Computed example of a mutant assay.
Amino acid sequence: MSVTTGFEVHRARGPFNAAFFSVMGPVIELSLRRHKQRVFAGLPSTVVELGSGVGANLRYLRPGSTLIAIEPNSAMHGRLRAAAERRGVRLDLRDRVAERTGLPDADADAVISSLVLCTVKDPAAVLAEVRRVLRPGGTFRFVEHVAARNGTPTRALQRALRRPWAWTFEGCSCERDLAGLLRGAGFAAVDLEPYRIHGPFIPFNTQIAGVART
């Protein structure tokens, strides 16, 4: 376990997830592209990203931009660096967790995340950290998967697969009410859209995308 981050890279899961998202990223992106294009439109020249992974969101940054990437899974780092170089994005890679980014107060114009708040240990603490690092008028733009409605087959499947899903995907939970957490996190305004994708990973298909403003 890293003393700095408190995140331990599992010798099997860490490399597996790096390889999985490298291979499956384009497939996942097909389902999410329209929502990402909406919420990531007009990003500034410097962006903080929580859980940058292998660089799925680099395509939404202009060439010459700077990405401050908060990514504690070192197995992702090589692919992320290579992707940033291909996209012409300057990469400032921080081996830290989203709860403790180490960034200055009120210093960022925009923070982004996609498919990250499901995996963090304390999503409320992450949202408090986002508010701390954003300048007044800054934006947190997110695309995340969430719990399905109670009583639905999807929610039953999310519950049934809770443990193996979390073990495989670095603690990922399909049962978090992230919309409720975002609305209660103290942002000045939260605009989000719930939607459903129709992919093969059914527990992952209920999602939200939106923008929170400080």
Rank of each mutant, 00 (worst) to 15 (best):
Ser113Pro: 05
Thr119Glu: 03
Arg132Thr: 03
Val143Tyr: 15
Arg131His: 07
Pro136Met: 06
Gly102Thr: 02
Ala98Leu: 01
Arg100His: 10
Thr119Cys: 14
Thr119His: 00
His145Val: 12
Pro136Gly: 05
Gly138Phe: 04
Thr152Pro: 13
Trp167Ala: 15
Phe142Ile: 02
Ala128Asp: 08
Ala128Cys: 00
Leu134Ala: 02
Val97Lys: 04
Arg162Thr: 12
Ala147Gln: 12
Asp107Pro: 01
Asp107Lys: 01
Ala128Phe: 00
Val146Lys: 05
Leu117His: 06
Ala106Gly: 03
Val116Met: 14
Arg141Ala: 10
Lys121Leu: 14
Ser113Lys: 03
Ala110Arg: 09
Ser114Asp: 02
Phe140Arg: 02
Val111Glu: 07
Ala156Lys: 14
Thr101Asn: 05
Val143Ile: 15
Leu157His: 15
Val120Gly: 04
Arg96Thr: 11
Ala160Asp: 09
Gly138His: 02
Pro123Lys: 11
Thr101Arg: 04
Ala147Trp: 10
Ala124Ser: 13
Gly151Glu: 09
Ala147Asp: 07
Thr139Ala: 14
Gln158Ser: 10
Leu134Asp: 00
Cys118Lys: 09
Arg163Asp: 12
Thr154Asn: 03
Pro164Cys: 11
Arg132Val: 03
Pro136Ala: 10
Arg159His: 11
Arg159Val: 12
Val126Met: 08
Arg163Leu: 15
Arg132Trp: 03
Ile112Met: 04
Pro123His: 09
Glu99Cys: 04
His145Ser: 13
Glu144Val: 08
Pro104Val: 05
Ala108Ser: 14
Asp107Gly: 13
Leu157Val: 15
Ala108Leu: 07
Asp105His: 11
Glu99Lys: 05
Asp107Phe: 08
Phe140Leu: 01
Gly102Ser: 04
Arg135Cys: 06
Glu144Cys: 07
Glu144Ser: 05
Arg155Leu: 11
Ala106Thr: 04
Asp122Gly: 03
Val130Asn: 07
Asn150His: 08
Ala166Ile: 09
Val130Phe: 02
Ala106Met: 01
Phe140Tyr: 14
Leu117Ala: 08
Pro164Asp: 12
Ala125Asp: 03
Pro153Asn: 10
Ala110Lys: 06
Glu99Ile: 03
Val143Arg: 10
Ala108Cys: 13
Ile112Arg: 02
Val116Arg: 08
Val130Ala: 05
Leu115Val: 10
Leu127Val: 08
Leu117Pro: 07
Thr154Arg: 15
Phe142His: 06
Leu127Gly: 05
Val126Phe: 08
Thr154Glu: 14
Arg100Ile: 01
Ala110Pro: 01
Arg135Asn: 05
Leu117Lys: 05
Glu99Ala: 08
Thr119Pro: 00
Pro136Lys: 08
Arg149Ser: 14
Gly102His: 04
